[in-house]
């Protein structure tokens, strides 16, 4: 880590300027970046720590929508009552990233921009229909989460662009989300497979909208539209769930690596998607009961 400069800008503009320097790397929680620096996978000349930018580590509610700062830690998400109640799937996904220690630092922004296909929070964010607020030399833009990752370690963020926040839309009535992942241990592993599901029911309990996203079964987290479509119009009965599983299995194109075989990942992606769908449905039903 020789010759690395450290900068913690106090404003977005300053950060954007700094990041246009060759060899500059953004740091939020640092739990991925510092590991990559340590093992020599990346050798930045300048580390731009975002955490002193006002609001970037905060969470706020605006007319039912949530704005989650890109550098808000997993622990901060877990401690946010209203967010946990509104989007339990996102919070549980964020809280699955690493240990308690990692939770104290790791952020949604870092989890997305590190662009690991196995990032836990990404399928949950995609399922929830979250968007990203991005600022760069050419101003601000807002895109869906699924538009960010393009492959392992690669994103659509341009040179100098900074992910500032995630926007979670105002949740429709009778909506629930859930995220499940499979790891061999109970903690501390990278997802072998992850699945996020968000469903909206009508008053009779029929599914009127659904988004299903799976992780670690392709170069990026996948939004599986066919899987969502399989649920819409159903009460998440066995037939619909079978179709959901088939759609997920069909969409999955995993690799075999040290964490799991392609065959295993495909099978388990379908299983987890079904289980997550049922949890999301139960939450949506409870949401209705309270409303």
């Amino acid at each position: 880590m020789s010759g690395v400069e450290y900068l913690s800008p106090g404003s977005v503009a300053e950060a954007v300027r700094a990041l246009q320097v060759d060899g500059a790397r953004v740091m939020a929680g640092g739990t991925d970046l510092l590991v990559q620096m340590r093992i020599g996978r990346t050798k930045p000349k300048l580390v731009v720590d975002l955490k002193r930018i006002p609001g970037i580590a905060g969470i706020r509610e605006e007319d039912g929508a949530f704005i989650i700062g890109a550098a808000a830690s997993g622990a901060a998400l877990g401690e946010h009552e209203a967010l946990r109640k509104a989007w339990p799937g996102i919070v549980e996904a964020a809280n699955l990233i690493g240990s308690t220690q990692i939770q104290g630092r790791a952020s949604l922004g870092g989890n997305l921009c590190n662009a690991s296909p196995a990032a836990d929070s990404v399928p949950a964010l995609i399922a929830a229909g979250a968007t990203c607020v991005i600022v760069g030399p050419n101003g601000e833009r807002e895109v869906p989460v699924e538009a960010i990752q393009v492959g392992p370690g690669k994103t659509t963020l341009a040179n100098g662009e900074v992910l500032l926040a995630f926007r979670l839309p105002k949740r429709a009535a009778h909506t629930g989300d859930a995220y499940l992942r499979l790891i061999p241990r109970t903690e501390m592993d990278i997802a072998v497979v992850g699945a996020g599901v968000c469903v909206t029911l009508d008053a009779s309990g029929k599914c009127i909208a659904a988004r299903v996203s799976v992780g670690a079964v392709a170069p990026t987290a996948l939004l599986v539209e066919a899987a969502g479509a399989a649920l819409v119009g159903s009460s998440l009965d066995d037939a619909a769930l079978t179709n959901l599983e088939a759609a997920v299995a069909a969409a999955a194109r995993p690799i075999s690596d040290k964490r799991g075989t392609a065959e295993y990942r495909t099978k388990v992606a379908a299983v987890l998607a079904r289980r997550a769908a049922l949890i999301a449905r139960d939450r949506a039903q409870k949401d209705g009961a309270k409303a």
Binding site: V35, T100, Q101
Partner: peptide, 9 residues
């Protein structure tokens, strides 16, 4: 907050 000192600059 509990952190790993190895993962903080």
């Amino acid at each position: 907050r509990l952190v790993c000192a190895c993962l903080m600059l």
